[in-house]
Design a binder for these strands. Sequence first.
DNA 1: ACCTTTCCATTGTGATCACATTATCCTCGC
DNA 2: GCGAGGATAATGTGATCACAATGGAAAGGT
Lengths: 256, 256
Amino acid sequence: MRNEKAREHAKAGAPALRRHSSKSASSRSRSDITRTLGVKSDITVTTHENVYRGLRDRILFGGFLPGSAVTLRGLAEDMGVSPMPIREAVRRLIAERALKMQDNRRVLVPPMTAETFEQIVFARKTLEPELAARAMDRISPADIRKIAAHDKAVDRAMAMGDVSGYMENNYRFHFAIYQKAGAETLLALVESIWLQFGPFMRMSYNRWGTSDLEDQHQAAIAALQQKDRRALRAAIGADVSQGMSFIGETVLRRSS
Amino acid sequence: MRNEKAREHAKAGAPALRRHSSKSASSRSRSDITRTLGVKSDITVTTHENVYRGLRDRILFGGFLPGSAVTLRGLAEDMGVSPMPIREAVRRLIAERALKMQDNRRVLVPPMTAETFEQIVFARKTLEPELAARAMDRISPADIRKIAAHDKAVDRAMAMGDVSGYMENNYRFHFAIYQKAGAETLLALVESIWLQFGPFMRMSYNRWGTSDLEDQHQAAIAALQQKDRRALRAAIGADVSQGMSFIGETVLRRSS
DNA sequence: ACCTTTCCATTGTGATCACATTATCCTCGC
DNA sequence: GCGAGGATAATGTGATCACAATGGAAAGGT
């Protein structure tokens, strides 16, 4: 099968050439990444790619708060690389609307507005049930077990009040399903959407906690087992609604 | 009003510093661009931005054919700038899925597959009628006149067999409507989608001509005038269906 | 005290160089 | 002739430097 990208490529940074910051480089471990598609991940790819994934995970799993500034040299220092791969990764994330460059040319994690929020909800409710429905026939029992495992991890994290863990596993739960649809084009739209509400999700959970969270994951898993497409659509739709209304509480109070 | 980005900034290229290719620089005139949002456009922005717009227009209006290779240094030579702003523009377009980097690290205009095509149709039929519906209440009689003018230009181009002119004005017709929705987040999704089928559209028209094209623009304009939201949704949906089924003819024959 | 002005640190941008990898073409052996 | 192998050109990537614009702080004047 092998959907795409199974590159080898050694490269990655010409260690003898680095004469700038030192800083011991790799604080970013590049395990636990996995990426959107189920690629097994073997050898290092480009520095830019690693930087991109690192930033992406931070945004998606709560490493950044909305409104926080992002500087090229700052990130370069943090990650122990030259500003160049940072520039490309940031440019990419700006294109995906995960970051925003304001007129000042300052880059920041975009704040949320009620209008943007409403559009995100619409897009999610439109696209995610569709992706799930398309995925259903391609999901094997083994896949369902993996999906259920993600859900378990979500519950664990929720019980422990581990916000990042919750966000990460919730993401994995959803995308383990969607990814199976084999619909890269639609998947890319949804990924962009998630990148846009990620930081805000964290903010919301910071304020309200994860304890009184409900989700429809169990209903979705049941629907997958019974191959009930209508029920699956409904479960995903309801899950999106619940999750977003929870987050929406925060949006509607203050507009940053 | 001023939706966003009304930068001034002089800059743009430090003319005394250029000691590489000469080539007399600006073959790209940067009039006739207008950009997505209705910004009036006054002063020069960054070189990267100009390069981006240039490439974007080429993709959207038929300047590239699917599968054609794109090299950084090649484009830099063409546009008379250093490879640097090209890199950023290309990276951005890759993120928007307008270009694709294959495992070779070669950049090309992505080929179309039947699967991708189907997803594009779904996304368009889902999002574009919604955008039009949201825009309706914000569209003034003056706006309708402008929209109708774009439609006229479409007809003219069609009659003359001017494929690029057709594509450009068709784009303007649609986005003049959508842009009025004030839904940037959804608009960005649709823009990304258009970038993905642009090159293929050109290919299709090259093969079949523009003469036997029908559209639902008149129906959409009528619906706007009567403020009939249901009819507007239907007209946009039908227009998408017609246009895409025409393009689909080409997709289904050969898979490149 | 408060507002203005000047100065300096910081930021993103563009250019250029060095390098590893990949593609392309040419040549040589059979 | 024709295919394998090696030299050569071309490509994306990362690093580094120079520069203009911006932001913020310190100093000055009223």
